[in-house]
Design a protein around this nucleic acid. Sequence first.
RNA 1: GGGCCCGUAGCUCAGCGGUUAGAGCAGGGGACUCAUAAUCCCUUGGUCGGGGGUUCGAAUCCCUCCGGGCCUACCA
Length: 678
Amino acid sequence: MTQRRILITAALPYANGPIHIGHLVEYIQTDIWARFQKLRGHNAIFVCADDTHGTAITKSARARGCTEEEFIAEMSEAHQRDFAGFQIEFDNYGSTNSPENREYCGQIWQALLDADLVSQRTVEQFFDVDTGESLPDRFIKGTCPNPKCHAPDQYGDNCDKCGATYSSTDVIDPISVISGKPPKRGEADHFFVNIERLHGFLSEWTQSGDHLQTEVANYLKGHFLGEPLRDWDVSRPAPYFGFDIPGSDNKHFWYVWFDAPIGYIASTRQWCDRHGEDLDTWWKSPDTEIHHFLGKDITYFHTLFWPAMLKTAGFTLPTKVHIHGFLNVGGEKMSKRKGTFVMAETYLNHLDPAYLRYYYASKLGPRLEDLDLNLNEFATKVNSDLVGKVVNLASRSAKFVSDDTLCAEYPDDGGLFQAAAAAGDEIAAAYENCDYNAAMRKIMALADAANKYVEDREPWKLRKDEARKEELREICTVALNLFRQIVTYLAPVLPKLAEQTSELLNTPISHWDETKTPLVGVRVGQFQHMMKRVEEKQVQAMIDDSKTSEPVTNEFNDGPEALEKEPLAEECTIDDFVKVDMRVARVIAAEAVPEADKLLRLTLSLGGDVTRNVFAGIKAAYDPEKLIGRLVICCANLEPRKMRFGVSEGMVLASGTGGKEVFVLSPDDGAVPGQRVH
RNA sequence: GGGCCCGUAGCUCAGCGGUUAGAGCAGGGGACUCAUAAUCCCUUGGUCGGGGGUUCGAAUCCCUCCGGGCCUACCA
């Protein structure tokens, strides 16, 4: 077989949060492919990096009270620790905030300028009033501008409720997520890449050859390539955490999605520098295959902009972009509340990474489909396939020959070894095609056949008969050779098991083709357990751990305590709800009740001359004078209640636990007393 | 609104124009006891989402409807 030169990348994890089991689908998928290619003897390298730029990083660093550089350094360390924990082995792990990356950004930028693809124009957008930062759509929240919807608290790009998409400048009552204040509208110059000029090239590249999965090619054709491609906004005005665009006098920075994919090149460059190789060998040679692995969310960056950049700057285009779907757990999106949003670190505190590597492998196919982690299936699959079938082979045969040797000549096994050796090509083809679930099924069929062999030969009966010792050795030689074939085929998925097997048989597993020749005459070591069964309670502990210890990672960092303290009430009907008549009211008089510890006496106006006398238990939290004039919400049809100090004719709505922790509700500006709350 | 993908046994999926539709797990029965309650044998279970069409032949191709997931450009 001729040796291929293969560059493999996984998408760069954003340095804004820890790695979770959803990310791991991709890194495990890619790592398996990289290990497979290496095991086949190809010259393959697997590079990755942290994606470190953008407004979100600045915001997180600020929340942590450190600089962006400190923040991303800490995050990079955490990411690499998690990856190492899952036996994901990069040949180089870089950062987009590296000098190499700046250099290649400059190079590609210059190529875009030389090709006259860059233009500059003014964009109207929002800025935060406190920090002066320009605000991306996701940093704006407000009311959906769709007249039929008007859902509050929606992001600046689209509405969760009605699905409308819009520009953040259209949002009603916009609020900056950074300061919580209304942003100011302003203008800024941005640089745009005229991607439409490469439309012909992109149509050709995406629709021909085998660069993309067919569903991805279809999606691009149906979605983007059917109409003119819009210009790509690749810059952000200062202040912005990233690289300043040369010649822009520190006023313009490359948008994070410009420099992120270039991180693939920069990371390769670091590897080249360490190994005395030339970058062009990897990025400008038609003899090098480039394989990107990524999730479906970032499809168009990698299938439109990225090829356009590479093409313009004279780099090699990807041989194949492998796009996978998202992870669901138990058929649903990962959920912090349900404890299914499991961080890599949390998983590792409870379970062996080999389990997840195998489970994902057994579910991954070449198509862009979501993958479901079913926790019951996870446990039964690992236990039944890995422990019950594979490891069991060694477990039930090795100890009969420990500290002894395998036969000097491979015995007759009825053609089992040959058949398994022949299956190697099919299994390899499945790996090559990213059809890991097919590969796993084929491998497990081999394990079934091997177990049946042991069953038929009943070695446990022979061991009692010294005269048949040689026969026993033959059976174990066959069983351990079949085991070793299986472990070799599984080595890309289960590197640790391959190492343990290497030790047991005193022979390293270093090449796929070792499955073609039986191992004979070697000394067999003491058998030790290679893998523990998954216990249901470990899985449950991991889920429980994820429920409580997970940091809430939305940008507001709201904790779960309040809800936990006072769980949601029983469901009520709309009819129940409308019975409660809540009205906007103005506090026109307020005084403390001297005889009472907690009460203020409030006089509320519902407009005109309608008033309500209300006793509210908010004395510890509010100064009565400051309440006067304020709008509040009151329950206006509550049955009046006689109290020692008079009759209370309603209730002022407030949240909080009592004492000083009381927060009276107020309507937004514009509300007038007497309006009903719906 | 537009687009992409999916709908096959209780569950997760394979099969994608050609013998009576398969696997693993789960369920039922039996064997074995070397092995981490592992293994082996037998077995229950499906009008392949519905309806039309093309074909000698359709789970497989086409149309349509229903159901589900996802994408829809400065969001990772």
